[in-house]
């Protein structure tokens, strides 16, 4: 089965991101395909490349990146929700005259149209929220 995940919760603020990562790993372990995790609303903070949690806590950003690396899961971040919260890749940083950038691959900034497509393309879209 093809799955998509929509994550609306920020990491380390509420349980949504932990629940979503746990669910993501389980669907893959059960042999399903996870097409993409779409980060929207506060969920865009999961793409913060500078996240540095203490070593004895789960590293959510690395957890998402690992899904991409090992299972080809796309990590799509809503560009409008990200920019207003200070999350931008190098290209957007240049465009907005900012020094430094806060998002990098494998997270990709994209539009909400991708979320609509994901939901309609997949057999199941599961939302995790604050």
């Amino acid at each position: 089965m093809r799955y998509g995940i929509l994550l609306l919760g920020a990491p380390y603020s509420n349980q949504a991101a932990h629940s979503a990562l746990r669910f993501a790993r389980t669907i893959i372990a059960r042999g399903h395909q996870l097409d993409s995790v779409f980060f929207y609303h506060e969920g865009v903070h999961n793409a913060a490349r500078l996240a540095a949690p203490p070593q004895d806590e789960p590293h959510l950003v690395d957890g998402w990146a690992e899904l991409q690396r090992e299972h080809g899961v796309k990590l799509d971040v809503c560009i409008a929700a990200a920019l207003r919260r200070g999350l931008m890749d190098e290209e957007q940083a240049g465009r907005h005259g900012k020094e430094g950038h806060s998002v990098e691959r494998p997270f990709e900034l994209t539009g909400l149209g991708q979320l609509v497509d994901l939901g309609l393309r997949c057999d199941r879209l599961v939302t995790f929220a604050p």
Binding site: Y40, H41, A80, L112
Partner: peptide, 10 residues
């Protein structure tokens, strides 16, 4: 607001 944005984009 972000839910409505989603609806408008769709």
């Amino acid at each position: 607001r972000e839910g409505l944005d989603m609806a408008l984009v769709a």
